[in-house]
Amino acid sequence: MVNRGIRGATTVTNNEEGEILRETVTLLREIVDKNDVIAEDICSVWITMTEDLDATFPARAIREIAGWELVPLMCSVEIPVKGSLPRCIRLMVQVNTDKTQREIRHVYLNEAKRLRPDLAQNQ
């Protein structure tokens, strides 16, 4: 097994706690489903949000998923580059796997599909 990073991103319409938590879980579930991994395979999850999102910590949503209580989670603010995609949540899921880099399925949802159209089309 090797350690691989699985990228994912999504956006929300509003800076609201419920929407941030829901979209975080939706994104994580898509990453897990498309890559056929379980919480026990996860080394850690790095979560960033753009600085226009401050209604909650997105890690809260992941900690509430059964079986994910012990997965190390870290939240941070994305680098505030002018003109970057607003209201964006990004995940970097570090996973132990036998899959090759080419077999990893990165997930981009909502407006975040614009970040990596090359990867979004392979979903």
Rank of each mutant, 00 (worst) to 15 (best):
T11F: 02
Q121F: 01
D118F: 03
L21F: 02
D41M: 05
L109C: 06
R7C: 05
L70R: 10
I79V: 07
Q121M: 12
M92R: 15
V45N: 00
V81E: 08
M92I: 12
I65E: 01
I89E: 04
K113Y: 03
W46E: 15
R22C: 00
K34S: 11
G5A: 13
P72Q: 08
G18K: 12
I20G: 05
L28E: 02
L53R: 06
N3V: 15
E78C: 05
T97A: 06
L115Y: 04
A66M: 04
G18C: 02
I42Q: 04
G5D: 14
R22D: 08
L85A: 06
E16Q: 15
A120P: 12
I42T: 08
T11C: 09
D33E: 13
R63F: 04
T10Y: 02
G83M: 04
E17G: 02
P72R: 12
F57S: 11
A59R: 04
M49R: 14
V95T: 09
K99A: 14
A59P: 05
N15G: 11
N14I: 03
R63W: 02
C43L: 10
T26I: 15
T11A: 07
T13D: 06
P86C: 13
M49L: 08
Q94M: 13
A9V: 09
L28V: 02
A55E: 13
P117Y: 05
A112T: 06
T24N: 11
E17C: 09
L73N: 06
P58M: 07
D54A: 10
T48E: 11
R29A: 06
L27A: 06
L21Q: 12
S84P: 02
A120M: 09
T24C: 08
D36Q: 14
I42L: 05
L119K: 15
R116A: 15
L70P: 00
H106E: 14
P117Q: 11
P58W: 01
V77L: 15
T13W: 01
